[in-house]
Amino acid sequence: MWLAVLAASAGAAAAGRVLGKVAAAASIVVVPFALWAFVIHGLFFPEGRAVLAALGPARVTAEGLAYAGGIVLRTAALVVVMLAFSTWVEVPVLRAALVRRGVPAQLGYVLATALGLASTVAERLERIREAQEARGLIVRQSLGGRFVAARLQVVPLVLQLVDEAGERAAALEARGQALPGRRTSYVDEPDSRAQRTLRWVLATASLAVVLSVVVPAVAGVLGGGR
């Protein structure tokens, strides 16, 4: 099931031509997590019976590996779904869709900026790094070198973002963001009968899955209580 979700989201990412970006971003999150999971659960799993190898207190068990594999797969599926969505989605279209469905404009703005935050932060960090390089900071290309450089850039980044936030709040208010009333959207939201149908089918299917689990469980609890 999780594998199917992973494959479907990877397929969707490929169709949206963002598979490379998604894979790169997902690996940053999933690979360290997978290493941790396999070390913890692969080597130390008290319930493990089928011992594949043993080294002092550490025992590699089939059950431990299966458990670690399971959580890595679940995490990978969730991470890839989220990243595929946020990388592929056109933020303006998403904002337009939210506006059309009556979501408060401020919430739409927060969502749009949150989804764009990673690229904003990356651009800012780059500018600060360049300013520091222009004054003799030598950034080594290794991961360690970049980490050391990033440490010097975090404080100015936060200060800049906070300083800007103050001005931006006034700009947004002056441009009418806090006004009551209906909003319209500059960007067209492409929607088709097929997409609408698919959304309804998915929503109904999700509800059906939830009900198929919840109803028997509740019935079982009630029945057992008698």
């Binding site: 933020v91 303006p92 904002r95 749009a112 900026t113 764009g116 904003t120 800007e164 931006r168």
Partner: peptide, 13 residues
């Protein structure tokens, strides 16, 4: 830059 929203993906928006 202080007048800009920081959320628009294009000049038109």
């Amino acid at each position: 830059g202080d007048l800009l929203t920081g959320a628009a993906a294009s000049v038109g928006e």
